[in-house]
Design a protein around this nucleic acid. Structure first.
Lengths: 347, 347
DNA sequence: GTGAAAGCGCTAACAT
DNA sequence: ATGTTAGCGCTTTCAC
């Protein structure tokens, strides 16, 4: 193994000077720098990250915890984090929290043990005080995504769930829908509350409130989409539009609607949330609210880099906008259409 | 910071004994072990991974290079790797090779620098000799997935592209299709060749060869699916079935077919490859060949763990089967159907 | 600007 | 079964 000693000997300088060159700090004369760089190249020297880390207590690794690295949504987020980290010369160690308090805590401790230079956390549970304390003691900066409680966060990225849900509801209301159901995520999630607020805001603009739509709570998965929709259908509730908690729920809902012989959007309109990977592959293309996951990941890594190098942040709390993506799953309500048809026939 | 010294003092033993307890090797009396474990718990001691790594030249990290960590297909694979690694007490540092020789080499060197205990590689290019040399010199074991050339591989996982393509073609032929097009991936990929061989095998069973189907080569993406299909349609070639290079290509093809007013599978049948995330969300559900990515990832991590601990492998070369997933995108060829209809009408 | 020296926290060979 | 000892490769004072 080629060590810094070999390089220093070859270049005829001390190890300290070599160290200054590879870490790019401190003063080194151009002459010696050239010598050292030549020696490094000739010997094919690669600094030992462990030794550097032990000595300097840095690792050039950012740790990231998301719900599930293998799901498309979070994979894209991690991808964004990696891109952002790369710009700062950092690698990313990612772990899944599985929306479970224990797994999340484990993942964080693990990353802390690895001497991460910073942590990016997308959690679904409030951190236990002892974990918060460990983060604090370690002095590792933290950027949270999604606003789930981590008092140790140095910076927070919020996603505009409020605005997204409001815009989506506005769109649906503007099409004339009033008989609306919402297959919502659970009330334990902050996102759920924000989205409900957003919907309420849009409803309010039409003199309506959440009481005027039908809300059912369940998981953010396809099964809930299928089951919830079946229940809605069975209830014979007059319904012209369904909001799904996310695109997975929407996929399930779409499936159940088709099974029941309902056409989307002719018979019933459907809205998702996330603009997940499959949203545009559904038939009809799903109208949904895009969360710019890749950008969010990059932003998180950028903020963390800034914090690490001590660069002042413009703000330590930023809200990332969401965007309504209009495809083909929302139309005008069936009843209204039949009215028009009636009128047309009457002519 | 709590160090091993603090623990040894508190427990009244030497550092070496503490080390034996935390590394779980060597003999330690129950009595002292209890003492040490108590001291560790009381002090909240966490071993310093950098120091351990520097000294022992292990990191408990597996490095993984795949084409793109943020794409659903590879994200699932990385997820599988993480699950498998966790069983062996390892974390996973993942990086994207982007199917580019340079990026792949960079990623590997980076992971080598991080003193990974092992490498899992899904590459698209043959490794440059100097990179292979670096891997060799480092002594880090390598498991490759997909069979792309890495002479330094300790174990190789192949995916049965041959069997998958053969089974898919058999299925299509069995439905009566003979006018078939294949929107294939590029010939620079080993997968492409294997799949062509598989198709040829199935065709041979019917006295046909690859010359009897129409093959066009392009990228593994949706755009090629759209463009390729448009060209096929414009060529007015009589066609009853399209094979897509993968599910992305299939999604594009499906889109183009719908645009052209063709019904799938009534007018034309469609087959994908991968059983990617969106395959079952397409309408009709895509008949495709499943690559068990999660299992492959887990297997890779398991093999690597075995190699690391020196456990003998059953075989250092394993082929993972693929599986034909039959959904709704393949039917009997249109012409044949009309024949039947004619017959039925004639009765 | 550069070098000498002192460890960072841990493990492993050796001794007992 | 346990302790002693000698570093792993690097960075960072502190002199000069």
């Amino acid at each position: 193994m080629v060590t810094i000693n070999d390089v220093s000997r070859r270049a005829g300088v001390s190890r300290a000077t070599v160290s200054r060159v590879i870490a790019d700090n401190g003063y080194v004369s151009d002459e010696k720098r050239k010598l050292i760089e030549a020696a490094i190249a000739e010997l094919g020297y690669r600094p030992n990250t462990m030794a550097r880390g032990l000595r300097s207590n840095r690792s050039d690794i950012f740790g990231a915890v998301v719900v599930d690295v293998s799901s498309p949504f979070y994979a894209q987020m991690v991808g964004g984090i990696q891109k952002g980290a790369k710009l700062a010369g950092k690698s990313v160690l990612s772990a899944s929290g599985h929306a479970l308090k224990d797994d999340e805590a484990h993942a964080i401790l693990e990353l802390l043990d690895r001497a991460c230079d910073g942590l990016i956390l997308y959690l679904e549970n409030t951190l236990a005080p002892d974990v918060v304390e460990m983060i604090r003691k370690s002095g590792v900066p933290v950027v949270t995504i999604g606003g789930n409680e981590c008092p140790a966060a140095t910076a927070k990225i919020h996603i505009d769930n409020f605005g997204g849900a409001r815009d989506a509801m506005r769109h649906v209301l503007a099409q004339g829908h009033r008989a609306i159901a919402y297959l919502s995520g659970g009330l334990m999630y902050r996102d759920t509350h924000e989205r409900l607020r957003g919907m309420a805001a849009a409803l309010g603009e039409h003199g309506l409130s959440l009481d005027d739509i039908f809300i059912e709570h369940g998981d953010f998965d396809e099964r809930f989409g299928v089951e919830g929709t079946k229940r809605l259908l069975k209830s014979r509730r007059p319904l012209t539009a369904i909001f799904a908690g996310d695109d997975d729920v929407a996929a399930g809902a779409l499936y159940a609607l088709k099974q029941a012989g309902k056409r989307v959007p002719e018979d019933i309109s459907l809205v998702g949330f996330d603009d997940n990977f499959h949203a545009r592959h559904l038939t009809p293309g799903l109208t949904t609210v895009r969360q710019p996951v890749d950008e969010i990941g990059r932003l998180a890594a950028r903020l963390l880099s800034q914090i690490v190098v001590g660069e002042p942040l413009e703000s330590n709390e930023v809200t990332v906008p969401t965007q309504l993506v209009i495809r083909e799953s929302v139309g005008r309500p069936a009843r209204q259409k039949s009215n028009r048809e009636t009128i047309e026939l009457a002519r």
